[in-house]
Design a protein around this nucleic acid. Structure first.
Lengths: 170, 170
DNA sequence: ATATATATCTTAGTCACTAAGATAATTAGC
DNA sequence: GCTAATTATCTTAGTGACTAAGATATATAT
């Protein structure tokens, strides 16, 4: 096999591996959600809250791609489960910040332990330089996906080049 | 900052980056599905079919974690959209193989093009050795998630150590 | 032959989602 | 300051994908 072909094959393998692991990540998430007794979207929102800290309901809608109405439902369920708290912004009383309730989040952490241990074990097998390479790859991959998502949205949001406002009505 | 601390911080960054990109991957998938006009699960199944080739309905259920009833619906919709075909196994007529219809799949490929280009560009910036490192990481990450998923399922499937059929009734 | 097992499909009911509009608070124009 | 427009969340009605349980059809075992 030529060097170029070998490289193309390597990239194909990498693509498949990334897709497989991405799909498995989705399934893992669903499984955690089932175990906890909440929906996949609910868990996804919790995850965003963990990453970004206290955010408004509207921002959650943006981040997840759900409507604000759906987010209201998500927050209702998470709040009832004691996992998050609504906090009205005193400076702008229209806004509702959603904040995690760390005490109760602990009981979810339990379901990530096995995963966490496995991942740490994997990460530990790499040198600092290798970890940096992986971090850069993950970051750039994220940026690529974000850009592709925006591109796709713009394709779908402007599908009609205008109803062609005919100057002469038929 | 000590070396150990710097390394821990690096790992934390890597974890966040992986979670972010994983979340964005989910959103990208949802966006593609919306654009195509099918559900997220439908697209996920198509993706599995692309990776694994012709598979049975039951295997799709296993792979996605959906019930066989739900898979029937997925296949019905995909078949109606002309994206897959049901093929009864002549050797075991209970089985239904699901096969992609490549001609019609092309119109979906269009929505992956931008993403694909971005990813190829990213991959090309790495040496063969680096690509191998990334492939290994993705593969091991997949295996870790798979194991964690199985572990989680066993936690939930055997939550009660049996009604304890006591040998000596109290 | 009959029973059991396997693979998919059907049915009834549930739950999260969207679209549209209601409510409430803020900002802008006059 | 008063009215209009804007922003942020919530409410409501209706839709669609999902699960659980059981039906159907085929295959294997005793």
């Amino acid at each position: 096999m030529s060097r170029a072909k070998a490289r193309a094959a390597l990239m194909q393998e990498l693509e498949n591996a990334l897709r497989r692991s991405s799909a498995q990540g989705v399934i893992f998430g669903q499984t955690v959600a089932n175990t906890v007794g909440i929906s996949g979207s609910d868990l996804e929102c919790l995850d965003f809250l963990n990453l970004e800290g206290r955010v408004t309901a509207g921002r959650l809608a943006e981040m997840t791609g759900l409507t604000t109405g759906a987010i209201t439902g998500v927050i209702d369920r998470l709040e009832k489960a004691g996992l998050v708290r609504r906090e009205r912004d005193p400076a702008d009383r229209r806004k509702v910040f959603i904040a995690i309730v760390p005490e109760n989040l602990a009981r979810i952490g339990r379901f990530y332990e096995h995963m966490q241990r496995g991942m740490v074990k994997l990460w530990e097998s790499y040198s600092d330089a290798e970890l940096k390479l992986l971090l850069e790859f993950a970051t750039k991959g994220y940026e690529t996906m974000l850009a592709a998502t925006e591109e796709l949205k713009s394709m779908v949001e402007a599908p009609r080049p205008k109803p062609a406002k005919k100057s002469k009505r038929s």
